[in-house]
Every structure is written in structure tokens, then in C-alpha cells.
């Protein structure tokens, strides 16, 4: 059984789960998006998976309930732990660096309670 959320000592952060082989350019821009908004982001490599599923798992793992999933093919999904698993807050496929930056900013803004666009 996993420990209760409150028992963990990690500081609150948006959690990003990425598949092995997720493009580093995507990870860089997503991280930059969250950093510009001033919200901490913790990267974690996990076994392979689709972006939306990774994002939801990351959200459940985050003390802020917000997660980002990045798949091996560079797809990005921003998720909240309370949202249905198949309905992410934002999903980007075949995106540009600006889209990836926006995904990071969106994850941060779900935390800060600011409009997402």
C-alpha cells in the first residue's frame, strides 16, 4: 500500500511524468512554461505510456493535484486529479515549441487559478 499523500515529504509541485525517450525539447519548454508562471515542477521518468494516462497518473501523484504527461512521441497532456481520466485539461499532439510552453503555463495556471489562455 502506498503511503498517504500527507505523509510524503516532497514540497508541493506540479508533477510531470514522461516516457523514456520523450523529446528533451518538449520537456524543456513545458518546464519553462511552469517556471515563467512561478510554479514548481518535478520531472519524473516512468515506464512508457500515452500522454493523457501519464498526465492523470502524474496529477494523482502531485500534492497540487496537477500533472503533465509527455509520451515518447512528444504528445503532451495537462491533467487534474479530479478530472475524469479520459478528459485532460489540455492535450497537445504534433505541437510546436510555443504549444509545449503553453502546456507548461496551463499546468501552472490550474494551480494558481488564473485563466488558462
Amino acid at each position: 500500500m502506498s503511503p498517504r499523500r500527507e505523509d510524503r515529504v516532497e514540497p508541493p509541485a506540479v508533477v510531470l511524468h514522461h516516457a523514456p525517450g520523450a523529446p528533451s525539447a518538449v520537456l524543456r519548454e513545458v518546464s519553462a512554461g511552469a517556471e515563467e508562471e512561478g510554479v514548481p515542477l518535478r520531472l519524473q521518468r516512468v515506464p512508457d505510456g500515452a500522454a493523457v494516462a501519464l498526465g492523470h497518473a502524474a496529477a494523482r501523484d502531485s500534492r497540487l493535484s496537477v500533472g503533465v504527461g509527455v509520451s515518447a512521441d512528444g504528445a503532451v497532456a495537462v491533467h487534474h486529479a479530479q478530472l475524469p481520466a479520459d478528459r485532460p485539461a489540455l492535450a497537445v499532439r504534433d505541437g510546436t515549441p510555443a504549444d509545449w510552453r503553453r502546456a507548461g503555463r496551463t499546468a501552472a495556471r490550474v494551480v494558481t487559478g488564473l485563466p488558462l489562455q
Binding site: 479530479q82 489540455l90 496551463t106 495556471r109 485563466p115 488558462l116
Partner: peptide
Amino acid sequence: EPLPSHVFAR
């Protein structure tokens, strides 16, 4: 039902 992302925090 969850509210759509485009209305979040608006």
C-alpha cells in the same frame, strides 16, 4: 460534470 477548460478561472 467537469466544467470545460476554456471557462477555468474565468
